[in-house]
Design a protein around this nucleic acid. Structure first.
Lengths: 129, 129
DNA sequence: TTGTGTGTTATAGTTCTATTATAACAATTA
DNA sequence: TAATTGTTATAATAGAACTATAACACACAA
């Protein structure tokens, strides 16, 4: 799977990595059991430091998206992914609220906003061939 | 309008301020032409520095939510709010994509996600009495 | 056994952002 | 004139993000 990092972005590199890997899982470019590059390999590929990659992997592990085995490396979690629990729902709403508020101010209607969400959902579904 | 700041949050104070003011506009607790507290007043109320408040006000001005008059103070923009232009749409989708990806991974269905968005929309509508 | 490749840990340093602290300035209004 | 606006300038602190090196522990293969 191809990862693109924008060094100029205000979004931290490790966050970009986490997001793209989660998006890869959602689109099934990354499948359960599949190996990710080693921290050194990924760092070399992207031209960044191994600690930055490691930080991303640790976060993904903490959230349950990957497993890390000491001498084997990092794999997409073969035992399933985290569920939509309460913590997630709270976090999700906290991130969604400012987006909805801005949409309301800009007279973006509920239907238009919902349509954008549906498009993104369909986009991930379409990637799963 | 009451503003609540969480000093422990990972979200910068000025961002919390910006978000809450936009949410206030969306819910019409803040109406066009209405005055906001002075940078010093707001800073004192919240127990933070005036520059932090000023940074939030400058961002709100830059995005078109408020007007700043040299000796009068800051008011909610009486001439209307920014529209849903291309820049906004791009930014909006960029912020929405990771949320949708995470939802997909957690087997949160499109309908459940859309319902959360609708709830937030209705919440802002309900606040406009 | 001896490398080699994993993740892990430790230390250090740089850069940038966020925040605070003071102070002063310019312009309007009471 | 005095008080209150936002504005600008300067400086300092704290923390996050990122990098650079180095070393360690463990497993597996030649």
């Amino acid at each position: 799977m191809l990862l693109r990092i924008d060094l100029q972005s205000e979004v931290p590199i490790y966050t970009q990595l986490v997001n793209q890997i989660i998006e890869g899982i959602a689109g099934r470019q990354l499948t359960p059991g599949e190996a990710l590059p080693s921290v050194r390999g990924m760092a070399a590929d992207l031209g960044i430091n191994l600690h930055t990659v490691n930080k991303a992997y640790q976060l993904l592990k903490q959230e349950g998206y990957v497993q890390i085995h000491r001498q084997k490396g990092v794999i997409i979690n073969p035992d399933g992914f985290p569920s939509a629990d309460d913590d997630y729902m709270v976090r999700m709403r906290e991130q969604l609220r400012p987006l909805v508020a801005e949409a309301v101010c800009r007279e973006h209607t509920e239907e238009q906003f919902v349509e954008e969400c549906r498009n993104l959902f369909q986009q991930f579904k379409a990637e799963r061939l």
